[in-house]
Amino acid sequence: MVGTFAHVLKHNGFLGLYSGLSASLLRQITYSTTRFGVYEELKSRLSKSKDGPSFPVLIAMASASGFLGGIAGNPADVLNVRMQHDAALPVQDRRNYKNAIDGLIRMTREEGWKSLFRGVWPNSMRAVLMTASQLASYDGFKRVLIQNTPLEDNLTTHFSASFLAGFVATTVCSPVDVIKTRIMSSHESKSLAKLLIDVYKVEGVGWMFRGWVPSFIRLGPHTIATFLFLEQHKKIYRKLKGIDEVDRAL
């Protein structure tokens, strides 16, 4: 990780650390809004009891939401991986997309529209794992903390539950993240089975958690900020709409 930072700073300067920012924003607009929106809608429709949906039901809803979000956000995800990976490549191998829109246009023109959905299946599976391990685990941890500790539905509980959810999500998604990144940044087409065999031969079982620390450094604060903002957003929305919070655990 340190070597990568040093390489990027040396050859691209400080701004090189923000390569792919526009693609990352586009990914959040498409991927995150889809999965969060579908999940909250399903949860509100199925919250018929005082205790809300059971944990297995939460996992099922989160998985469905993640799958749809993965498909919706795949084009931006491909761009995000490519633009961030560009800075570590030799100059002659870089794609040099100006921004997310330029990248979408060039990918469609140079590689066909199917390139926008390169790696869509592993990416969608990653989205399923991410959403289930992040959203469902957050609601699960939040419910356990409220029901089994002196904590109430407040900022401390939201922070604790989101921190634990970030840890779970990073661990569960690490193997799929490695596969997704290598498929999307590859210059050659290679089947998933062939890729897994080649990676295992070179790196052994350890490939599954390669980059776990930088992933947690990214995903941990992101998960915490996301849920803290989401909880405050829901609180303000309910107050404006005059909606009573029947179930404080959800």
Rank of each mutant, 00 (worst) to 15 (best):
W113R: 11
R94N: 03
L155I: 08
W113F: 14
F209G: 00
G166E: 05
I105T: 12
G166T: 07
A100C: 08
K180L: 10
V199Y: 08
Q92G: 02
Y18C: 07
I236V: 14
R95A: 06
P150F: 02
S185A: 11
T181A: 14
M107H: 03
A165S: 14
D198G: 04
F159K: 03
D93K: 15
R248W: 02
L196N: 02
L79M: 06
N99Y: 01
R27Y: 14
L26S: 06
L219C: 04
K241Q: 14
H85W: 10
L145W: 08
I146E: 07
V199I: 15
Y237W: 08
A100L: 04
K114R: 10
V2E: 13
T181L: 07
L196I: 09
N12R: 12
S65Y: 13
T4G: 06
R82L: 14
G16Y: 00
D93G: 02
R218G: 12
V199Q: 13
S63C: 12
L17Q: 15
I71V: 15
E111Q: 12
G140H: 02
F159N: 01
W121D: 06
L145H: 09
V172K: 05
V8E: 02
L42D: 01
M61P: 08
R126P: 02
T170L: 02
Y138F: 15
S115Y: 10
L196P: 01
V38I: 15
V176A: 14
E110G: 03
E245T: 12
P122I: 04
F167M: 11
T149D: 06
A88S: 13
S63I: 08
T4V: 09
G37L: 09
F36T: 00
D244R: 11
D77W: 03
L26C: 03
V205R: 06
I59C: 14
W113N: 09
R95G: 05
G204A: 11
Y97S: 03
D86A: 04
T33H: 12
R218I: 10
W207I: 02
M208D: 01
A132I: 07
G69W: 11
V128T: 11
A23T: 07
G16I: 03
G119V: 05
L89Y: 03
S215D: 11
V144I: 12
A6L: 13
P214W: 08
Y18A: 15
G112Q: 10
V213Y: 03
E110F: 07
H233M: 12
D244Y: 09
E188Q: 13
V199H: 05
L230P: 01
A72I: 01
V172H: 06
A64D: 03
Q134A: 05
A161V: 07
A169I: 06
L196F: 05
S189M: 04
T181N: 14
K10P: 00
M130K: 09
H11I: 00
A169K: 11
M1D: 13
S186G: 03
T156I: 13
H222F: 15
S174V: 03
